[in-house]
Amino acid sequence: MSGFNLYTRGDRIFGIANASLMLLFVLSTLYPFIYIVSASVSSGFAVSSGQVVLWPVDPTLAAYKHVLSDRMFWISYGNTLYYAIVGTLASLIIMVPGAFALSRPRLRGRRLITFLIAFTLWFHAGQIPFFLNIRDLGLLDTRIGIVLAFACNAFNVILLKSYFESIPASFEEAARMDGATDFQLLWKIFIPLAKPALATVTLLCLVTRWNGYFWAMVLLRSEEKIPLQVYLKKLIVDLKSDDGFASRLMTAEYSFETITAAIMVASLIPVVIVYPYIQKYFTKGMTLGGVKE
């Protein structure tokens, strides 16, 4: 069968250019990741002297041994886990009922409330009033302060609200005929039906919490409460200002670069493990609420 050539020359050139561009994007995304992993298992001298480009040089686990024996690493790791898990749970507990209520047409003033929530996506008070708020609430330098301060996110509320609205009204009507209260309707019908949206929001919350840095640095003073990202920053600053440590760099098996890389890899491990299982929700989340299934 000879068939027809469906693609013109222009189509083919476009296809090749497209693929090349995509490849470039993939490489530029993957390269830093590969470099960090390689640096973390290379000798300090090899990294400092710029020998590590792609693959490990003088492979060693010395940086990991140093990091894993550091008490503060484990404390900050635990803090990050706490902020990620408890923070995400708090976010869901606050946002899910809120979004559900906003999705119900019978809620009076729901348009105004939705508008006010959406308003904060573009305009907010700014960092100083936010800091003062947290201070005046007595939440400065507390774990619960970090959990509550970012518990409600306008984007996630609107995403959940849109998804709840896309669930056919007949489910609610059927459940009401069956005798469901508002809470039972949410818990037994809407939450199970909104699993894709909930997974997306959970993931967004988890990732944001896991990578949380700026506000944790601003709001927390005690070393015992800082998350991993803040600890990492602190470590880099400490190591760089430690002259004795710097003088040992040329001879030690690790440098502050390899230690930094090892902490980064260690902090990435949970995300790398979980991501393959939930990555479909990332892409799904982008289109949630847009189409009625």
Partner: peptide, 27 residues
């Protein structure tokens, strides 16, 4: 509705997709 002692069958059935047949009927 729940206090009217009536039952309704909807055009699109409105069966809860996450429940089994038995769970739907028992809800």
């Amino acid at each position: 509705p729940k206090e009217r002692d009536i039952a309704m069958v909807f055009q699109n059935y409105a069966l809860y997709p996450h429940m089994t047949v038995a769970e739907n009927m028992a809800f």
